[in-house]
Every structure is written in structure tokens, then in C-alpha cells.
Computed example of a mutant assay.
Amino acid sequence: MPPPMLIHAAAAAASPRHARLARATATAATTTTSAVLLARRDLTVNDAQKVTLGIIAVYVVAIALLWNIPYVRGILWPFKMLVIAFHEFSHAFACVLTGGRVQSISLDPREGGVTHMLGGRNAVTLPAGYLGSSLIGALLTFAGFNINASKIASIVVGVAFLLTLWWGRRDWLTILTVLAAVGLLVGCWFIAHAEALRFVVLFIGVMSSLYSVWDICDDLILRKVNSSDASVFAQRYGGSSQCWGVIWSVISLGFMAAGIVAGIAAFPQSATQQREDSQHFIPTKF
């Protein structure tokens, strides 16, 4: 049996280690609790976000109705052309990123479009149209939860449109669509410190997300179009165009849901606070 002094010394040496372990455990528990509480707080929907979610729901219903009602569906035509421009821009952007060259972009009055490319990786450029436009829609939906974020998003979209305009400079419909879109965004900057811009950005985001999903379903599942991006993708990489259509649709809906959740988490400001912040960030008023 060791002498009492040795036992006391061992206990004294172990005591600081136990204290440090206890403090570390307590700190970890506090950090975990704080993270859980922060996550709960970030995903708590406030009044301003409830309004935004309600507007998104109204947009979804309105778009679904206008899409299928004869004679009034033309109301959505300018926005359809706009999201088709997103689709073609996504093809072009993916082509450039993978080492290809874009020759031209053209939009069809019958709600179609084509991007002429040389080179690039087809495994990336083919799905980029559908998935890119749905990702853009999700990002715009995310930005639509906040006025200042909508301002930033409108600048980015404007620059992207100018690139599209460069590639489509020989196509009059592309030129008119891009100029009309840029004009709409610029005009909304001057209404109530760009509060109107937030709702326009939100609508374009929802429209782009829904159009991407509907276009995939319409081309690949309902009508089984043989010349779609997915049919070419299936021919080159296997599977069926319908299978790829379902996969891309699920991904597109996932983008939209992620944009909404991220908007709730990132922008907890009240409507009043958003207006005040907007007055100090590139202030405008009409």
C-alpha cells in the first residue's frame, strides 16, 4: 500500500485534469445547446417572413392557373421568355467553364431557345440548362426574402443578362427580352426604396424554379420529346430521358426548397428594419 503522501499527491495531480475535463464537457454542452437554440431561432418564421411565404404561395397558384387557362396564359409570356434566357445562359456559362466557346444564343417566340456551342463537356453543359435555371430561381427566391439582397441579386442578374445580350446580339427577341427585364429591374429600384424590387425578384425566382420543373416534366415525362437535353444526355451516358427528367425535377424542387429555408434562416429582419436598411444601401426612392 503506498504511503498517504503519495496518495494525496496522486489525487492532487488528478484533480486539475478532472477539473479541466469537467470544464471542457460543460463548454461543449453549452456550445451544443447554443447551436440548437440558434438553429431553432434562425428557422423561426417571423411576421415579415410569413408574408413572404404567403406571397410565394400566391405566386405558385397564380402561375399554375395562368399557365393552363386559354387566352390569359399570354400574361406569363414575357416571364417565360425571361426564364428561357436563364436556361440558355446556364448552357452558355457551363460551356465557358468547361473550356468551350459560345457562338450564339437565340430565343424563339414560341417559347423555345437554342445555344450554339463549340467544345465544353457535354456531361456538364447538357443538364446545365434545366438545373442552372432552377438554381438561379432558388437563389432569386432566397434573395426575395430581403430588400438589400434583392438589390444585389438584381445587379448580378443584370450583368448576366448583358452577357446573354452579347451572345444573342443578332437575335431581336433575345435583345428585347433582355432589355425589358433589365428595364423592369432598374425601374423597381426607385419604388419605395426598392421594396417593389423584392417582390419582382421573388416572382422571377418562383417562376424560374417552377418553369424548370414544368419544362422537364412536359418535355420528358408527358410529351417525351426526342430532341431534349435529357434525351441527348441519355444517348451519350446511358439511362432513359424520362429517368433523367425525374432526377433533374427532384433536384430542381430541392433547390427551390433550399432557397426558401435559407431565406428564412438568413433574413430574420422585420419589414420595418428592411426598409431602414435599404435606405442606407444604394438608397433610391421614387
Rank of each mutant, 00 (worst) to 15 (best):
M1V: 03
P2H: 01
P2V: 11
P3L: 13
M5T: 14
H8F: 14
A12M: 09
A12L: 11
A13G: 01
A13W: 07
A14C: 09
R17K: 08
R20G: 01
R20N: 06
L21S: 13
T25N: 03
A29S: 11
T30V: 12
T31I: 14
T31Q: 15
S34L: 15
A35M: 13
L37F: 08
L38Y: 00
A39H: 05
R40G: 08
L43Q: 07
A48W: 01
K50T: 05
T52K: 00
L53R: 01
G54Q: 00
I55A: 12
I56R: 01
Y59F: 14
Y59D: 11
V60N: 04
V61A: 15
A62W: 02
A64I: 06
L66R: 00
W67L: 14
Y71F: 14
V72S: 09
R73F: 06
G74D: 10
W77Q: 13
F79M: 13
L82E: 09
V83W: 13
V83D: 13
V83E: 15
A85N: 09
E88R: 07
F89Y: 15
F89S: 13
S90H: 02
H91W: 04
A92W: 02
A92L: 09
F93P: 03
L97N: 01
L97C: 11
G99T: 00
G99M: 11
G99A: 09
G100I: 01
R101T: 12
V102C: 03
Q103A: 12
S104W: 01
L107T: 04
L107K: 03
P109R: 05
P109S: 08
G112L: 06
G113T: 01
H116N: 12
M117L: 13
G119D: 06
G120R: 05
R121Y: 04
P127D: 02
S133Y: 01
S133N: 12
S134K: 01
G137F: 03
L140R: 08
T141C: 09
G144K: 08
G144N: 10
F145H: 14
N146P: 00
I147Y: 10
N148W: 07
A149H: 02
K151R: 14
K151G: 14
I152C: 08
A153D: 04
A153Y: 05
V159R: 09
A160K: 03
L162K: 07
L163G: 14
L165R: 08
G168W: 08
G168I: 10
R169N: 15
R170H: 15
R170N: 14
D171K: 05
W172E: 09
L173I: 13
L176C: 00
V178F: 12
L179N: 05
A180T: 10
A180G: 10
V186L: 15
W189Q: 07
I191K: 09
A192D: 15
A194E: 06
F203S: 04
L210A: 04
Y211H: 07
S212R: 03
V213L: 09
V213T: 06
D215L: 11
I216Q: 05
D218I: 01
K224H: 15
S227D: 15
V232A: 14
R236A: 05
S241K: 02
S241V: 01
C243I: 00
G245W: 02
S249C: 08
I251A: 12
G254T: 08
F255N: 03
F255W: 09
F255K: 04
F255A: 06
M256L: 14
A257C: 11
A258W: 08
A262L: 13
Q269W: 02
S278M: 10
H280T: 04
I282G: 05
K285V: 01
F286A: 08
F286C: 10
F286M: 04
